[in-house]
Amino acid sequence: MTAYLTSTIRQAGIVLAFAVSFAALSATPSLAYSSEAQQMCTGDAFRLCSDEIPNISKITACMMKKRASLSTGCRAVMDRDLAQKSNKVAAQ
């Protein structure tokens, strides 16, 4: 029972840290990602970059580095969000 409780608390902590990280990403203009990206990429971030949680810049770098391993949906949403961000920067 204690091992199960410890595991559950640890998982809840990881989920919370990841949620805070993505919230901060969304609040940071240079690293803003849509809620759709958050939804599509959370599983990939846990699968590929869980060691980097809760460090936002390291999660972002890890996701970019492992882009080829991202799920199709996550990769498409991240590409779209990055293109939109690039267009905004170019327009300024």
Rank of each mutant, 00 (worst) to 15 (best):
T2L: 10
T2S: 06
A3G: 00
Y4T: 09
Y4P: 00
Y4N: 10
L5V: 09
L5W: 02
T6D: 13
T6H: 05
T6R: 14
S7E: 15
S7N: 11
T8C: 00
T8Q: 08
T8G: 01
I9D: 02
R10S: 08
R10T: 11
Q11M: 08
Q11T: 07
A12E: 06
A12C: 00
A12K: 07
G13V: 01
G13M: 10
I14T: 10
V15Q: 11
L16Q: 10
A17P: 01
A17V: 00
F18D: 12
V20R: 04
S21H: 01
A23C: 01
S26C: 01
S26P: 00
S26Y: 03
A27T: 02
A27S: 14
A27D: 09
S30G: 14
S30R: 11
S30E: 14
S30T: 13
L31R: 06
A32T: 09
Y33W: 06
S34N: 06
E36L: 14
A37M: 10
Q38T: 13
Q39I: 05
Q39C: 00
Q39R: 15
M40I: 02
T42V: 12
T42R: 11
G43H: 06
D44R: 02
D44S: 03
A45Y: 08
A45S: 14
F46I: 12
F46W: 05
R47A: 15
C49W: 08
D51L: 02
E52T: 10
E52W: 01
P54C: 06
P54V: 05
P54H: 02
N55W: 03
I56G: 04
I56Y: 03
I56N: 12
S57V: 13
S57H: 12
K58C: 01
I59N: 04
A61M: 05
C62Q: 07
C62G: 08
M63W: 04
M63A: 13
M64R: 15
M64C: 00
K65R: 15
K65V: 03
K66T: 09
R67D: 15
A68F: 03
S69G: 03
L70T: 07
S71P: 08
S71N: 09
T72R: 14
C74W: 10
C74A: 10
R75T: 05
V77W: 00
R80N: 06
R80Q: 11
R80H: 12
D81F: 08
D81Q: 09
L82V: 07
A83T: 05
A83E: 11
A83Q: 13
A83N: 07
Q84A: 14
K85R: 15
S86G: 02
S86A: 14
K88M: 10
V89N: 01
A90D: 12
A91M: 13
Q92M: 11
Q92G: 12
